[in-house]
C-alpha cells in the first residue's frame, strides 16, 4: 500500500459528554488528504461538537483524534496553524466591512504585505465579493455573509478545512458555487470536512459519515451507501396523506415509511414479487384514496432513514 493517501484526520473512539448527555459517542473514522468528507445527520447529532473537538475548541472526554498528525488535546496550537474553520454561527465582525474582516483574519494567521493584499484580492475575485467589499457584514444577507466567512476561513490556504453547515440559509445558486469551490480546493490538495443535513449536498462528498445521536451509523461513498440499501422502494401519492403514512408504517411487510414532500416513500422487503398489490390493499383498508404508485430510486435519505430505523429497533429490543 505504498501509494495509499496519507491520513489528514484520524479519529479513534472520540467521545464528548456534557454532564449526563453524550453528544459524541465513540466515533472512529479516517479522512485522507485531499478528500471531501461529509458529515450527514440531523441537528443535534453531534456534528458541530465533533468539529469543535477537531479544532481544539472542546476537549474530548474520551478517545483520541489527530489532525495533520497532531493530537487535538495536546498539540492544539500547532494544529491550529494547519486548519481553517468556518463555524456554524455568524462569526464575522458585523461592524467591519467584508475586506476589513478578511484583513483581520489575514493578520490572525500572520500574513504580511504585499502577499496579504494579493491574497485578499484573489479571494474577492474567487468568491465574487467585489459588490460587497466595502459593506459592513452585519448588513449583508446570509448568502453574502457565508461567502465572506468562507473567504476568511481559507485566507491562509490551510491544508485542512472544517466547514460547519456552510450553506445553511443560502439559496441554491450560491450553494452550487460553494460546492464548486469546495471541489476546486480539494483538487488543489485541501482536505475538507463539511457538515450538512441536506442530502443533495451529501451526494457531492467523496465519502460520507452518517451520524445519529452521536454515533456513526454508516461510512462509505454515496453510491455504495445507496447500493447497500435492502429491499424495494415505492413512491406513493395518496389522499389523505397522514393516514396513508400511518397505515403503511404499521403494515408488517413495510421496513420503513417516511414523508418526502407530498409523497410517501416506503421500503419493503424484497421477495421477488411486486409489492404494489399489497400496498394498495393496506391503503384501501385504511380508507385512503391512492392517486399513484411508482417504483423509486434509493436516495441517501432512504439510507439514513433505514439505518436510523434499524438502530431504533435494536434499542427497543
Amino acid at each position: 500500500m505504498a501509494d495509499a493517501p496519507r491520513a489528514a484526520v484520524v479519529v479513534e473512539d472520540l467521545t464528548k459528554r456534557f454532564r449526563d448527555f453524550v453528544a459524541v459517542d465513540h466515533l472512529s473514522f479516517t479522512i485522507a488528504e485531499g478528500e471531501v468528507f461529509g458529515f450527514l445527520g440531523p441537528n443535534g447529532a453531534g456534528k458541530s461538537t465533533t468539529i469543535r473537538m477537531l479544532c481544539g475548541l472542546l476537549l474530548p472526554s474520551e478517545g483520541r483524534a489527530q489532525v495533520a498528525g497532531l493530537d487535538v488535546a495536546r498539540e492544539t496550537e500547532a494544529l491550529r496553524r494547519q486548519i481553517g474553520y468556518m463555524p456554524q454561527l455568524f462569526s464575522l465582525y458585523p461592524d467591519l466591512t467584508s475586506v476589513e474582516n478578511l484583513e483581520f483574519y489575514a493578520g490572525l494567521y500572520g500574513l504580511r504585505q504585499p502577499s496579504l493584499g494579493t491574497r485578499i484580492e484573489e479571494l474577492v475575485v474567487r468568491l465574487d465579493l467585489e459588490a460587497v467589499r466595502g459593506q459592513l457584514t452585519g448588513t449583508l444577507s446570509t448568502g453574502w455573509r457565508q461567502r465572506v466567512a468562507l473567504a476568511c476561513a481559507i485566507i491562509h490556504e490551510p491544508p485542512i478545512l472544517f466547514l460547519d453547515e456552510p450553506t445553511s440559509g443560502v439559496d441554491p445558486a450560491v450553494r452550487q458555487q460553494f460546492w464548486n469551490l469546495i471541489g476546486d480546493l480539494a483538487a488543489e490538495g485541501t482536505t475538507v470536512l463539511v457538515t450538512t443535513h441536506l442530502m443533495e449536498e451529501a451526494e457531492r462528498c467523496a465519502r460520507l459519515a452518517m451520524i445519529d445521536r452521536g454515533r456513526l451509523i454508516a461510512l462509505d461513498t454515496p453510491q455504495a451507501l445507496r447500493d447497500g440499501l435492502q429491499g424495494l422502494l415505492y413512491e406513493i401519492d395518496a389522499d389523505p396523506l397522514l393516514p396513508a403514512l400511518e397505515a403503511l408504517a404499521s403494515a408488517p411487510f413495510v421496513m420503513d415509511a417516511a414523508l418526502s414532500g407530498a409523497t410517501v416513500r416506503v421500503r419493503v422487503a424484497e421477495m421477488g414479487i411486486s409489492r404494489e398489490a399489497a400496498i394498495r390493499d393496506a391503503l384501501a383498508a385504511a380508507q385512503v384514496n391512492v392517486v399513484d404508485i411508482r417504483a423509486g430510486e434509493p436516495s441517501l435519505e432512504d439510507v439514513f432513514i433505514s439505518l436510523v430505523g434499524d438502530r431504533e429497533e435494536a434499542s427497543a429490543r
Partner: peptide, 14 residues
C-alpha cells in the same frame, strides 16, 4: 456572546 470568538479561538493567535 456573538460567534466571532469561535473563529478567533480556532486561529493560532496566542
Amino acid at each position: 456572546e456573538g460567534g466571532s470568538f469561535e473563529a478567533l479561538a480556532a486561529s493560532p493567535i496566542a
